[in-house]
Simulated assay, not measured.
Amino acid sequence: MVDPETVTFGGSGLDRAAELRGDDDAIAEAISTGRAACTLIWRGKPLVAEGTQDRLIRLPMDHPILAEATMSLLLGRNETGDLLFAHDISDWTPAGVDEDALNKFLDTSEQQHPALPGAIFVELRRIMTRLDARDAELAATARAVINWHVSHRFCACCGAESRPVQAGWQRSCDACGGQHFPRTDPVVIMLITRGNSVLMGRSPGWPEGMYSLLAGFVEPGETIEAAVRREVYEEAGIRVGPVGYLASQPWAFPSSLMIGCRGTALTQDLTIDPSEIEDARWFAREEILRAFAGLHPTLAPARQGAIAHFLLRNWLADINY
């Protein structure tokens, strides 16, 4: 298998500068001496170059747009030692925005702030394969942590409103002293094979013909291997034997860590749970090859950039995968 960290959103080697998160003086010095820059997030969408949409826009820390920011997050430090932040300007409301379209599975809308010519806010899933590894990791991190702040404003211990601390990596409750940290939900995604075939399913509302690998959340008190076997049986009625780890992917939609596993099916007959998925089927290796080549009459390939696409592509490349 190729390097598992070449999966989208992984492998950039970002120095997250965690030791600086509580050092307000060091952060202030970096900003005052021009050794810091920022990128912007609007309702989960990163700010990218208009036209190519292949790179995050970095702004100076004294840019006037930052007056509209509701919070700041230290993302890390680049190779020259400069700091990079993300600022959230989600309180801005563009003229004519379609609220129903925002951040949907196929959100094609773009937003341009009048103070930011040459740059647009775009749904990250649309452009994740255009960004290089570093920008993809930065965008995913910013989206996940900022979304966590939006959904966790109030203390889980006493209900009082908490505040961001540690350069955005923590929330502190002044009322009871509670400390809260960004959550990441573990999700198993499974390459389940039987002979020359792989098991795939689809959820309601997906584009016509699109199937992907089965996936589900790991429950409390459960191992990764047990989660794989439980989810596959719940969704498709298939019993799974040996399970192994393949690769992982941060998935900021909204805050998951996708844990890619392989498993060997012990049974073949499918029993679909319609409350879990719309359909599931066994697909032969040759069918997946045709789908990836755009030649299958009905099957669309898994979304490029998602770990399902990564796992399937590597399975196609290695008969002993």
Results as ranks from 00 to 15, higher is better:
A28V: 05
Q304I: 11
A265I: 02
V48C: 07
P186G: 05
P182N: 13
N314C: 08
G263Q: 01
V198Y: 05
D91S: 14
L131P: 02
T264E: 14
L40S: 06
R130V: 04
Q111F: 15
T52V: 10
A291G: 06
G241E: 14
R126P: 00
L116F: 11
E137S: 09
I288A: 02
A133F: 00
T141K: 02
V240S: 07
R229A: 11
T52K: 14
G44F: 02
L213P: 00
A252N: 05
M258F: 12
P220V: 07
R55V: 08
A167R: 00
D54Q: 12
G177S: 08
I146Q: 04
G244K: 12
F154C: 11
F283I: 03
S255H: 10
H63A: 12
V240N: 02
D91P: 01
R35C: 08
E5N: 14
E137F: 04
L40C: 07
R153D: 04
N196H: 15
Q249R: 06
I89D: 01
M258K: 04
E276G: 03
M128C: 07
A139S: 12
A18C: 09
G263H: 01
P114A: 10
H113V: 05
R35H: 14
A215K: 03
K104L: 13
C155L: 11
P60C: 09
P250W: 04
D3V: 09
S256M: 09
R230C: 08
R290E: 11
R126K: 13
T129L: 12
E5H: 13
V150T: 11
A144S: 13
N147C: 09
A95S: 13
W315M: 07
A101D: 08
L116K: 02
A119D: 06
P114S: 14
S197H: 15
Q179E: 14
R130S: 10
P297V: 10
D54I: 06
H149P: 02
D54W: 08
L106V: 10
I189Y: 03
P301S: 09
S197W: 09
A101T: 04
P60D: 12
L131F: 11
T193C: 09
S197L: 05
K45I: 03
A215C: 12
G96P: 01
R171S: 05
F292R: 11
D185H: 08
E68P: 00
L84Q: 03
M61D: 13
F283V: 04
L84T: 05
I307D: 03
W169Y: 08
T39V: 08
G244P: 00
V122P: 00
R262Q: 08
E137I: 01
P297L: 14
T70C: 13
E287Q: 15
A280W: 00
T298C: 08
W206A: 05
A215N: 12
A144Q: 06
R21T: 03
N103C: 14
T39P: 00
D24N: 13
Q249V: 05
E235P: 00
G81I: 09
H309N: 15
A136P: 04
Q112E: 10
D15K: 10
M61G: 04
T184K: 06
V187K: 00
E99L: 13
E231W: 07
V145C: 06
A300Q: 14
L74H: 05
